[in-house]
């Protein structure tokens, strides 16, 4: 690994300032993606700015129908949070199923969303719940945040500070993990809200996380798992790789949606 200048600023403004003054800086959250990337030489920043001491990025708060999770909150903390578990149990379940215990002790929600891996779990919750990504300079609605595989609308130097999740009427998440990597071969987040049902699929789309409108239409008519068997999921734009082809992923989207709906309805 190439050497770099390491810094650990204590505030958001310091972190942004260090980024602005460096040649080619990268932020580091839990390092669970960044360190493997640096080891493989896929990125060679001059500066690594550790966000671990930035106090503004910490904490979970629930108020007025919104769950706000600070960007540096580790997956294990979200999974174990009673506040999250009461307000949006599906979100706590999702966090508890990311990777493995060691990864969950270091990996963060902000890092996961900034990275936007097409097989990551959190993007499905953010799009499924129509959450808002808050940064040091603006607020981005879920629909405008994701911008294809590993791409987002974050600008250079922009820091995710928190994610605001509106509490739904009910929600469920189900994933079929790749047995080796534990990332989603397909994961589906289903949320029933006052303004309708949202279904977001991760692991499946060539352009990353996306909404499955045929399933949203079916669930708006009848929010039960059984009738979904008759819905055909279009294969266009689904990924084919060494792990699964588009037809299999389309099938899994149906199966995972049915499981997520059953969980949302309290029938696991």
């Amino acid at each position: 690994m190439e050497d770099f200048t390491y810094s650990r600023p204590a505030s958001l403004s310091d972190a942004v300032a260090v980024h602005g003054n460096a040649d080619d800086a990268m932020y580091m959250a839990g390092g669970q993606t960044l360190i493997p990337v640096l080891k493989q030489g896929l990125a060679m920043p001059t500066d690594v700015i550790d966000l671990g001491a930035v106090w503004q990025l910490d904490g979970i708060a629930v108020s007025g129908g919104t769950v706000t999770i600070g960007a540096m909150t580790r997956h294990a903390v979200v999974a174990a949070s009673n506040d999250v578990g009461r307000a949006i149990p599906a979100l706590a379940t999702l966090a508890g199923g990311i990777g493995d215990a060691q990864v969950r002790n270091r990996g963060t929600i902000g890092g996961s969303l900034a990275n936007n891996d097409p097989s990551a779990d959190y993007p499905a919750a953010v799009l499924g719940l129509n959450a808002t990504v808050v940064t040091d300079r603006r607020e981005l609605a879920a629909g405008g945040y994701f911008d294809g595989m590993f791409a987002t609308s974050l600008e250079p130097g922009e820091i995710i500070t928190a994610v605001k999740f509106p509490v739904p009427e009910k929600a469920g998440y189900a994933k079929f993990p790749n047995p080796a990597s534990r990332y989603a071969l397909v994961g589906v987040f289903v949320a029933k809200t006052a303004s309708g049902v949202r279904v977001a699929a991760t692991g499946a789309g060539q352009d990353g996380v996306f909404r499955v409108t045929v399933l949203e239409d079916a669930l708006n008519d009848d929010f039960r798992a059984a009738p979904l068997r008759d819905v055909t999921i279009p294969e266009d734009n689904l990924m084919t790789d060494m792990h699964a082809d588009a037809a299999y992923r389309a099938h899994l989207i149906g199966v995972m949606t049915a499981r997520a709906v059953a969980r949302a309805n309290g029938r696991d």
Binding site: G31, Q32, I35, P36, A101, Q102, V103, N105, R106
Partner: peptide
């Protein structure tokens, strides 16, 4: 960062020491 052979405790929690500076 997949095998876990490098697991140590950081303030009591299991972490992969190959995925930390």
């Amino acid at each position: 960062s997949q095998c876990g052979a490098c697991t140590v405790h950081l303030n009591g929690k299991a972490v992969k020491s190959c995925t930390m500076l």
